[in-house]
Design a protein around this nucleic acid. Structure first.
Length: 479
RNA sequence: CGGGGCGUAGCGCAGCCUGGUAGCGCACCUGCCUUGGGCGCAGGGGGUCGUAGGUUCAAAUCCUAUCGCCCCGACCA
């Protein structure tokens, strides 16, 4: 059986091993940079989709679907947008055996084509706000890919909304950022730093971008979700005008926001260990698996009967496979991140007990069968909380302050970070200016965001320009 | 696109230097035996050695060309 590379040895190899051994996905092989999401991985995505979609609906959004192909000219209508995405576009030039008069691009994101349709649908302030979400695949020709974290094609949702005022649009932008942060923390048990992107790092075509940033076990940052205040940029590019209450014409104020299957990569790198996948109970397709154990034929019937009864009570999957031994079943479910595994053998049938094992801590408890349902429920709840607490502590322990550019650079230097597992979130005072971002990039780090909540010491002088800024920004190396 | 590595059974690899019957581990199939952390034993199936050309009596092995994949970097959710 193939071993999982320990995190301490090679974090990137560990990540690949966990994904493969957890049977979540595999490289598509015949399609460059793409992956096949296998049932075990897709089930996690479905649970995550449900959690997100429920919240989108609860905040007034409706789902819709727009075409995969976008006329090439659409991309060019917003200057920054085309500049930002051009390098990574795949273009359809031939269809039906004929050269197309105007090529289509395969959507890298859908602001442009949605903008086009918004222009047709919106005429009055009464049509606003328009709150649309799309679940879709998009394609970006990335130079380097990693399963879930960055693939050529990926699955995501993209919210697109139009509002009558900038205030409304900004409120929406921040509301959805909050939704993302809430799902990340309460569902994925993945703490995040919520904040505003610098001007250098914002989405191509946005006025301002906001993000949630998570810290992986090696200390690298992962941008886990983004929400954009698009201002009137796309409104003007696509002529999305409406008549105000006062009878004047104005362009709509738009937002867009998205999270992707990348979240699954973040989930893996937040909780999993050297034995394989660890899933927070809320995102575990199988929360409880019961492994029956028996020797003799007469034991078999007794054990399976008891197992079926208990499984029904606690909602467990019984692993009845004849071809595998209990030992191999334990490894099997461990690698797949099942939060709780129950062991039931002749000893337990005789004593009326059952063995309950937690995936994250590896601890085994023996409890009376009469209490197993309550015990499982409690264990799942505790595990969800513990995973979050552990990740929160890691984020806290690896967030440090720095008061000079030299200090930032030395903390993030190659000797201690990246594959070595010593990555940090470095908090420093830095003016939001692309020139300053460029200086940070010199040592392969970036400003992740300017936190919405200042948990540190308030205003200070920019470590590069000496100008007064109102809080520290988060600097880190990132995926 | 720059640097490095690799293409041999489903997967992971050895064989290549020094040309001569296609090999190992895992997985798979059959039977027996086992089952509280990856059971064991016996038998079995499966490969135009990435592709194309060349050298040779003979090529996985030597030569030439070509295609593809992976890793590191630049780009990025």
């Amino acid at each position: 059986m193939k071993k999982i590379t320990p995190r301490s040895e090679d974090f990137a190899a560990w990540y690949q091993d966990v994904v493969l051994q957890g049977d979540m996905a595999e490289p598509a092989e015949v399609v460059k940079g793409c992956m096949v999401i296998k049932p075990n991985g897709y089930a996690i995505w479905e649970l995550l989709q449900r959690e997100l979609d429920d919240r989108f609906k609860a905040t007034g959004h409706e789902n819709a679907y727009f075409p995969l192909l976008i006329p090439q000219s659409f991309l060019k209508k917003e200057a920054e947008h085309v500049e930002g995405f051009s390098p990574e576009l795949a273009v359809v030039t031939i269809a039906g055996g004929k050269q197309l008069e105007e090529p289509y691009v395969i959507r890298p994101t859908s602001e442009t084509i949605i903008g086009h349709f918004f222009a047709r649908w919106i005429h009055s302030y009464r049509d606003l706000p328009l709150l649309i979400n799309q679940w879709a695949n998009v394609l970006r020709w990335e130079l380097r890919t990693r399963m879930f974290l960055r693939t050529t094609e990926f699955l995501w949702q993209e919210g697109h909304t139009a509002h009558a005022t900038h205030e409304d649009a900004l409120e929406e932008t921040l509301r959805m950022l909050d939704v993302y942060a809430e799902v990340a923390e309460n569902v994925m048990a993945m703490p995040v730093v919520k904040g505003m992107k610098t001007l250098a790092e914002k989405f191509a075509g946005a006025v301002r971008s906001y993000s949630i940033e998570a810290m992986m076990q090696n200390g690298l940052a992962l941008q886990a979700g983004t929400s954009h205040d698009l201002g009137q940029n796309f409104g003007k590019a696509f002529d999305v005008q409406f008549q105000t209450k006062e009878g004047k014409l104005d362009f709509v104020w738009q937002t867009s926001w998205g999270v992707s299957t990348r979240l699954i990569g973040g989930l893996v790198m937040t909780h999993s260990d050297d034995k394989g996948l660890v899933l927070p109970p809320k995102l575990a397709p199988k929360k409880v698996v019961l492994v029956p154990i028996f020797r003799k034929e007469e034991e078999r019937a007794l054990v399976l009967e008891a197992a079926a009864k208990i499984a029904k009570e606690v909602g467990a999957h019984v692993d009845v496979r004849e071809s595998e031994t209990p030992g191999s079943k334990f490894f099997h479910w461990e690698q797949r991140g099942v939060p709780v595994v129950l062991e039931l053998g002749p000893r337990d049938v005789a004593s009326g007990n059952i063995v309950i094992k937690r995936r994250d801590t590896g601890t085994k408890d023996i409890v009376p069968q009469s209490e197993v349902a309550a015990k499982v429920k409690a264990t799942l709840e505790i595990m969800q909380k513990d995973l979050y607490a552990k990740a929160r502590q890691r984020l806290k322990d690896n967030t440090v302050l720095a008061n000079s550019i030299e200090e930032v650079e030395s903390i993030l230097s190659d000797e201690v970070t990246a594959e070595k597992g010593g990555g940090k979130f470095v908090m420093a005072h830095l003016k939001d200016d692309p020139k300053n971002d460029a200086r940070i990039k010199e040592f392969k780090a970036s400003v992740r965001n300017i936190p919405a909540v200042d948990e540190f010491d308030g205003p200070g002088k920019c470590i590069l320009t000496g100008e007064q800024v109102d809080r520290r920004v988060c600097i880190a190396k990132a995926y």
